[in-house]
Structures are given as C-alpha cells and as structure tokens.
Nucleic acid binder design. Structure first.
Lengths: 152, 152
DNA sequence: TGTTTATAGTAGCAATTGCTATTATATGCA
DNA sequence: TGCATATAATAGCAATTGCTACTATAAACA
C-alpha cells in the first residue's frame, strides 16, 4: 500500500500529459514544450541554463528544444550583452498568442480533471500535493518564494 | 491558477521518479522497469499486449523492455500453448528477490514524500488524486474493480 | 474446406533525451 | 598582465521511445 502514492501520482500525471497532448495536437507543441513556454513567459530574458533547471531537463536538451522552438518562430535567442557565451531567451508575439489560445483548452482540462470535486477539495488537493512536492524537492537552497507554485 | 493542478502533478511525479531512480540506481533498473515488474508480479502469465496496456506503453516498447529484462534474467518469456503468436510473461525468482529487496527503499520513499502529513491527510491525498485519475482515465470500459489501485 | 479479416508480436526508421567531451568566454588570483 | 579554473552552450554518441509496416498465426464465415 505504501507505494500507492508514487504509482498514483505517476499514473495521474501521465494521464494528464496524454490528455493535454491529445487536445493540443493541432497546435503542434507538446506538453514539455508548453511547459517551457509557460515558464519562459514568466521569465523573459532568462538564460538557457537557468531555464533548463526550471523545467528540469539537461542544458543540452533545453538547447535543442530552443532550436526547434526558435525555428518554429515561438522563441527568440538574443545575445547577452554582458556575456558573449550566453543567450537570453524571449517569447515571440506568436508564442504569446499561442499560449493565450491554448488557455481555454488547459482551463477546460483542469476543470475536467477535477470534476466532481468541491472547491474545498480542489484547494485541499493542491495543498496536499504541494506538500509532497516540497518534501521531494532537492532544490532546498531555493527559497519557496522563488519557486513556481501557483497561477501558472 | 487553473493549470496549477496539471503542473503540480507533473512536477511532483517527476520528482518522485527522480528520487526513485536516484535511490535504486545500483539495482540497475529504472522506475518504468520497476513498474513493469510490479504489474507483472500481480499478473504472472500475462501476455505482452495486455501488460503494455497496463503500464501504458506501446506494445513495441514493451517488447523491447522485455527483451532487456529477459536478458537481465528478471523476466521469462514462455510460449503460449494456446496461441503460437503469443508469449506468456513470468517473473523469475531473481526478480522477486529484487522487488522484495527494493520494497524497503520504496516504502521509505513514500514515507519521505508524505512526511508531515497525518494519516488522515495521506488518505485524503490518495482519495483526491485517485478521483482525478479516474476523471482523466480513458479506459472507461474497464470496471474500476479491475484496475490497479492500491496495495501495489 | 478455403478465404478473408483480425490479432500478437517485432523490425526499420525517425525523433528525443542525456552522458561525456569540447569550444568559447569569463572570473579569480599571483 | 598572465595563467589556472569555472561557466554557458553545443556536438557526438548511445539509449530509449513510438509510428508505420510487416510476418506469423488465429478466428470468422461463406
């Protein structure tokens, strides 16, 4: 019974990704790319390394994700004027529009996922899972206030 | 705020997998392989197709996972006497021992993940996430009683 | 029985990911 | 300043995954 929570969370997250991908297939971006764009929207001008940390992929993986998103006209790389090794990342207007357009879909998905739950239960779910995430997080050095939590 | 639950679940599940993989690195199997073995333990003699459904990967992916696990001496393929196209899968004694040995680790991980939660809160967490999973599940045709839920 | 259709599993290919090594640049320090 | 070390990003390679097509076998049915 004790692994249940790990199994359960993984199952549920996978179903979430699957539902997300099924609904946004025509937009041409995946759940992971969407994740990148959402984080980037809140951190315009971030470098690749820190963004890789945020979405928890390897820097090289992020580098290649950005290659594709830049080619698709959704992300722009600008040279960092203070460090010639680094790129600063920006969302293009097109990506903004895309995210806005997807907003309804993702809202509907969240609604569907929590169908039958009262507002209090939804709040409780988020609070409890949030505590589990907090327990599991390795990034203890990063103050909680710095972390992405709500309202994404 | 509405996507929070999707983000949160994915974050948490990822952290879970990461913690799992970090703790079981020396065992040589990944979280996904562990998942396969755990399901297989409860369904000895299952065919590849249904097991692929259970762990939600494509049949070809499962086929190759079984290739590797068979080579590692953890899973055994036996010909189905009633259908010469099919294989029946069995856990080897070695896999049983491996799972038993990992049990302590996974128990400890579940404990750590839910640290600070009361028994009531843990139960509530499981119940709420379980309802979300149920909402998201496409396999509506499969009666709930048939599905893997607890005690894994 | 013989033919059509469905099913179990696998091979080829392409896409994605991460490990390791490498390049270019910046920083620390004598 | 000049050299050693650290850092940002990327290329090469290997592993894994899934899509599509394929083979072998079973089931349905005329």
């Amino acid at each position: 019974m004790s692994e249940t929570i790990g199994f359960l969370l993984n199952d549920t997250a996978r179903l979430f990704r699957r539902a997300f991908n099924a609904r946004t297939r025509d937009s041409g971006i995946t759940a992971l790319q969407w994740r990148l764009l959402v984080y980037l929207r809140r951190h315009q001008g971030i470098r690749q390394g820190p963004l890789a940390d945020l979405i928890e992929v390897e820097p090289i993986t992020l580098s290649r994700m950005v290659d594709r998103l830049a080619e698709a006209g959704l992300v722009e790389r600008r040279a960092d004027p203070t460090d010639r090794r680094a790129w600063l990342l920006y969302l293009t207007p097109r990506a903004d529009a895309l995210l806005d357009g997807m907003r309804r879909t993702t809202d509907a998905l969240a609604e569907e996922a929590t169908e039958g739950l009262s507002d209090a239960e939804r709040a409780q779910l988020i609070a409890l899972v949030g505590r589990v995430r907090c327990n599991l997080s390795r990034r203890d050095a990063i103050p909680e206030s710095e972390r992405e939590k709500e309202a994404i």
